[in-house]
Design a protein around this nucleic acid. Structure first.
Lengths: 114, 114
DNA sequence: CTTGCATTTAACAGTTCTGTTATTTAACGT
DNA sequence: ACGTTAAATAACAGAACTGTTAAATGCAAG
């Protein structure tokens, strides 16, 4: 997983997260995605382009409409990064606890090389 | 969890993700965090401010140094959003499968109102 | 072919982000 | 008090983001 930049940047915008939340309930055309928002159509179109370039959605022509659907692998990549991060953090917590258990009197834990 | 904007925006920058990855291995001072990067100190300081405002880290004075540590609740909020999203998406997948099982001959699934 | 609808692109303005160097602030040691 | 180190802030330039309106594209229907 490489494009975490684009993925997280795409997720940073509330409009785009709302679009994703809507798409999680089922596919939709661009017009249907525009409806709930007060911003202009072109603005939504650009949000969709950002989501597409982040590989979070795909678009396909269907007559004169364009159907959008979720492509959640990118979001899985973001979740995976966070989980890896969390695993490391728990690991360091464990190391800290073990260190404290070994040196129970040490008031400051400056020495972090167990 | 409310500040998903700030959280995801903070995670969108590779330097900041690297800082978080470094902090997951253990606390560090600002100087130690600066060392691996080629950008200037003030730039790192601003990244740290972004991370702090996103509640991803905390900073505490310690003599003339300033010790940074992870505060992963914010990241948990981001992970939670993604997981919720994923759950909904799986749910709609299930509904789609059920719909297809009920109408096995239907070639197009335009009618999405089960 | 012309008209209309759905969507995208162009051109533009205002705001926000990221980095730089120069200047503070704060704590330490002498 | 003085100089030194750690870190933050100020001031600035340039890139990137988001939104708007107006024009262009692609498709379908009469």
């Amino acid at each position: 997983m490489k494009n975490l930049d684009a993925t997280f940047a795409a997720l940073a915008d509330p409009t785009r997260r709302a679009i994703l939340a809507r798409l999680a309930l089922g596919e939709a055309t661009v017009g249907e995605l525009c409806a709930p928002f007060e911003i202009s159509g072109p603005a939504i179109s650009r949000h969709l382009k950002v989501l597409e370039q982040a590989a979070l959605i795909t678009r396909a022509r269907e007559g004169q409409h364009r159907r959008c659907r979720l492509a959640p692998e990118a979001m899985a990549g973001a979740a995976e990064w966070i989980e890896t991060q969390r695993r490391f953090w728990n690991g360091s917590l464990d190391r800290l606890a073990e260190h404290l258990k070994r040196n129970p009197t040490s008031p400051d834990a400056k020495d972090e090389t167990p």
